[in-house]
Computed example of a mutant assay.
Amino acid sequence: MTILCRPFSLTVFTLSLILTCSFASCISKEPADTNDPAYFNAIDGNDIPLTVPEAGDWRYSHNEKRQHLDAYKKSNPVRQGPNHSTIYLMPVGDFTDLQQAALKQVREYVEIFFQMRTVLLPAVTDSIATVVASREHDGHTQLLASYLLDSLLKGKCPSDGIALLALSAKDLYPKDSWNYVFGLASYTKRVGVSSIYRLQDEHLDTTNYKTCLRRLANISSHEIGHMFSIHHCVYASCVMNGSNGLRETDRSPLRLCSECQKKLFWNIAYNNRRRLKQLADFCKNNGLQHDWQIFKADQDAI
């Protein structure tokens, strides 16, 4: 298991995926069409420059190197192949009807984002984890993230899965000395776990549904992007920017910057224009106005 610690405040920490894993069974030959100069020349100018990081921001305390496209290609990134071509999302625990609706919409978003078949699996119980690997913290139950990763999810990734991301209804923690964690992942086992709990400000209702949906879309695409070996972006404002907490997550766009789009396109070789239209339509149809405007600017440019 490989993890990276990210400070959230003086006493609260989160985890992010380390980008060191590849597995031979997910490597396929390079797609025939890995160039779309007209598209990328059109959208390059819409990249949003990064602002100067403030104390507490991810980039303030992390000096990460920029991952250029050539470096990405040489990194032996995780690739889909005939035996690994589906992304799986697994709910863990009991979800309200509204939470289930959000998970279904996030499945749709992930499928659009990666242009790859995405399946929302039936929910599995967290009862065993609640009994043997949990604690009470600030008046609610937290599950031990490493237990979910190493025990509950062990062997659960379907044979055709390239990635399995579990989404817990309950809050998570990585060890007793930490307050909470947003997620934890093992690249060698092709599984990761995150939680909806903090993304909904502890309780989901109609007033914060859109906020929660956007956060789920942001974090799911970010973490699965890591599973495709894309590093944190330090080039422009991007969904792959590192984040120390919800303040930064809410600030980052759902859009991949042009450089990170080139990596994903080189890897998967989808139709850029179709993907862009679907992303814009998703945001417009679900009231994510700011992100719709960002995607629409790319549509106008092409």
Rank of each mutant, 00 (worst) to 15 (best):
V119A: 05
K170C: 01
L120V: 11
F182D: 06
D205L: 06
H137K: 12
P77C: 06
T2N: 08
H62M: 11
D205K: 04
S177F: 09
L264K: 11
I87M: 07
N63E: 09
K284V: 00
Q261Y: 12
D176T: 12
K175Q: 14
D138M: 12
V131C: 02
A163R: 12
S186W: 04
T188D: 10
Y72H: 02
R66E: 13
I112G: 02
P158N: 05
C233D: 14
D291V: 10
Y209M: 02
K263F: 06
Q278R: 04
I162Y: 10
H62N: 15
L15S: 12
D205Y: 03
L143P: 08
I196Q: 05
D57K: 03
Y109K: 07
N267M: 06
P122W: 13
Y72V: 08
G139C: 03
R66W: 06
L10A: 03
I3Q: 05
G81A: 15
D70F: 15
V124T: 12
G183F: 10
E30R: 13
S28E: 05
A123G: 07
T211R: 04
L120D: 05
I48Q: 11
I128C: 14
N267F: 09
L69E: 02
T206K: 08
G139E: 05
C260G: 01
P82N: 04
G81Q: 00
E108N: 12
D176P: 05
C257W: 04
V239H: 14
L216H: 04
K156F: 04
I3V: 13
T51M: 00
K263E: 14
N41T: 10
R107W: 04
Q289P: 01
I112H: 10
D44E: 15
D150N: 14
S195N: 02
Y197S: 09
L288A: 00
P174F: 08
D291A: 07
V52M: 08
N285T: 05
F95D: 00
R135W: 05
P174A: 06
T14W: 05
C26T: 15
Q80I: 15
Y60C: 09
G287N: 06
K210W: 00
D44H: 14
A169T: 12
T2H: 09
